[in-house]
Design a protein around this nucleic acid. Sequence first.
DNA 1: CCATCGCCTTGACGCAGATCAAGCGGGCTT
DNA 2: AAGCCCGCTTGATCTGCGTCAAGGCGATGG
Lengths: 248, 248
Amino acid sequence: MSKPQISFPQEQCAECPIRHRAVCARCESDELEKLESIKYYRSYEAGQTIVWAGDKMDFVASVVHGVASLTQTMEDGRRQMVGLLLPSDFLGRPNREAAHYDVTATTDVQLCCFRRVPFLEMLDTTPHVSQRLLEMTLDELDAAREWMLLLGRKTAREKIASFLTIIARREPSFQNTVGVGEVAFDLPLTREAMADYLGLTLETVSRQMSGLKRDGVIRLEGKRHIVIPDFEVLMDETGDDSDGGVLD
Amino acid sequence: MSKPQISFPQEQCAECPIRHRAVCARCESDELEKLESIKYYRSYEAGQTIVWAGDKMDFVASVVHGVASLTQTMEDGRRQMVGLLLPSDFLGRPNREAAHYDVTATTDVQLCCFRRVPFLEMLDTTPHVSQRLLEMTLDELDAAREWMLLLGRKTAREKIASFLTIIARREPSFQNTVGVGEVAFDLPLTREAMADYLGLTLETVSRQMSGLKRDGVIRLEGKRHIVIPDFEVLMDETGDDSDGGVLD
DNA sequence: CCATCGCCTTGACGCAGATCAAGCGGGCTT
DNA sequence: AAGCCCGCTTGATCTGCGTCAAGGCGATGG
């Protein structure tokens, strides 16, 4: 476990391929300058812990590359993932000094960080940034509620299928290939992390993956590379309504 | 199922014993006037559906009296509660025309409603209101994440114990009695609604309630009235860390 | 006073997924 | 190239909770 590397490249905010760019797009130049001055980057290796629950957190951040997860752990070691952060997702709470959840890099991760207190000050003076923060939080809340349905009521097989569609949908390749043919991507999580996401054991995850493979719903090339020959077939395994998503 | 009664009492905002009062406390008088003009009340009986998922919702609201729940339903009828609204909780999304979840009155409910579009306009001009909305949303997100741990990793008995502590803590009587003696309250949910909350069947809920009663952790007076002789003993059944909660 | 209905309890049984255990295979170190 | 470790798979067995079924109890109404 090496120390995270910290660098301070003075790139323009627009160079971050992350969601806070949508904020900056509406920022005045002096606001951008302010953002630049409190911004820096951190990198973590797969498996590293970014923060422990209870630790002071002096920054908020956007995920630039890689995948990080929020998990809760019970005294006896039972673990539940409660957040999965993909590129462009936001990490941290401007109003909160200490983290409430363990944050772990599930792949190599690069964060674009903002020092928390100056970021908080900026929120007071730039209402459109806090509006954007509200939108993002509401999206997270919706995701959490989908997740609750999954945890409370779906079978192991439905959980796996739902998880795969969630990951597939956020893959950059998905937009081009959907409906046209197969979708392929690498799983950014170990079987154990999937188990923590889904409220299962890693053995059950493994068995259900094998089951979906045996039934031709997915192909497995190596342990992590997934090919979905027909996205509709996978969708049918999720238990979800089949009609299109509802817009805002 | 009778139609909801709608009344338009011109009470002052400060008379609502609800969380948006905290907003209004900082409002200028012209903002208060604006709020008054778009405000009205609705009442629902226990069991009534307030809105169906997909319905247009032309208002947002605060719960004044009673308890309402948000639920998701799968095609085959499996149901999961994803939100429980107690007095002072907020219902609806200013930016969202259609509801994403079924909203049901689990007891008789009174809502303090604001017409959505004017409320939305007010948000643009009064930043502290959207800040307050952000705080409330973040609280909901934390609650959802606790809930996910419960759904994914806790045993039936732990789920019931956790649920009872959650309800007990929000009972007005709790503040006075904790540590001093027993806590007593009425369950605002049927066994079936508890099952939907906890990701269980109503039979399992019933059995586990009987189990906790048999072991002296709770007393049951009638079907709904709960007496907790020693809150610590109940806490030990939840599986949660026993140290005090973390502050913001 | 009895019939009905909604909500709840309890019992018997089965199964999905947890637990325990063994082994595989690819990449790393030595 | 031998050995090891880590992530993963698969098998055998166990068990907590779901399912199916029968009744209890209190409120409401005829």
